Amino acid sequence: MIKIYAPASIGNLNVGFDVLGAAISPIDGSLLGDCITIQSSKKFELKVLGSFKNDLPKNELDNIVWKCWNYFCKKINKKINIKITLEKNMPIGSGLGSSACSIVAALIAINNFLKKPLQNSELLILMGKLEGIISGEIHYDNVAPCYLGGLQLIINQKKYLSEKIPNFTNWLWIVGWPGIKISTSQARNILPKKYSKETCIQHSKNLAGFIHASYTKNSKLASTLMQDLIAEPYRTCLLPNFIKTKKKIIEVGALSCGISGSGPSIFAITKNTDMAVKISEIIKNNYFKNKIDGFVKICKIDTIGAREIG
């Protein structure tokens, strides 16, 4: 038997649409992500547990974990009889890499169980392909950090698919899921097909400056450049109370605030634990649909990524 945990992630980070992503873990030591357990079996079986199991498709063939198994079998040209148990702990359509958690954990678990017939690069390509089934486009800004950990820059070249870049270890990342769902495809379809030359130039300046600031350890510059010119102006209509909540978060002194991935989750950054708690309360009181369904977590960058757990 083998059990793999894959952590939640924040895509885009405001400044890096589709090219930046960060794996995150709560500072209290709890797990924020999905788990996959694999056992020997005489036939293929898929069992689903976890807080959000009822949000998954009822038809097994529509489950992304079944698709992971099916694609893996095709990749190695062999049908694998195993029992897979998915612990679906991440809300679907949350903007925290929920589908990536399931995909990454499933593919790593299958590969490890079979004594690693696929190399890491092959696995990552397969992860991106399966993520594309969910979102409508292949992108790696959730699967790469979820798999490899840390802050990942997506380059998407043959030998350089994704590269880990330095992160600010004293940053606390507060993430809040308001208890509603937004599909990735819905959030992508709302974006314009074309952007002005001025927007493209400024976006390039911000992204290049952020990468520079990350390598030179200039925290102030990095946080200043974390501006979303590509998605946030168009996606706020999907996020009730986002603008008001962000304004309050920035007013109390957060370094940055934005939409996590496609939303509806949001993130904020601070260096101060007391401020992180204050930001958590702002999110709960101003952004949640109700205080029962949503959650807020104070996190740090997860530098490990997906791993085997007991």
Rank of each mutant, 00 (worst) to 15 (best):
D274R: 09
L148E: 01
A105I: 07
Q119E: 15
R307D: 01
I292N: 12
E198N: 11
F267L: 07
L151I: 07
S196V: 03
F242Q: 02
A306C: 12
V175T: 11
L221W: 00
N156I: 05
W177P: 05
I36S: 05
Q157L: 14
D228T: 10
E45K: 15
E45P: 02
S25W: 00
A254T: 02
S25H: 01
N70T: 00
C73R: 06
L56G: 03
Y287R: 06
I292S: 10
I133P: 00
F72D: 13
A213N: 07
A187E: 10
F52G: 01
C68V: 10
K193Y: 10
E60A: 12
N112V: 08
M226R: 06
S25A: 12
L255K: 09
Y71F: 06
K158D: 14
E131R: 07
L255P: 04
I279D: 07
I10E: 06
K248D: 05
A268L: 08
F113L: 11
T273F: 14
I201N: 04
L56K: 04
K53Y: 00
I155C: 11
I134R: 06
L225S: 05
S219T: 15
A100K: 04
L151R: 08
K181V: 15
I24E: 03
L238C: 13
Y5L: 11
L238F: 15
L151A: 07
I180E: 14
I304M: 02
S30W: 00
P166N: 02
I27M: 05
C257Q: 05
L126T: 11
E232S: 12
N272L: 01
W177C: 01
A6V: 10
P264Y: 09
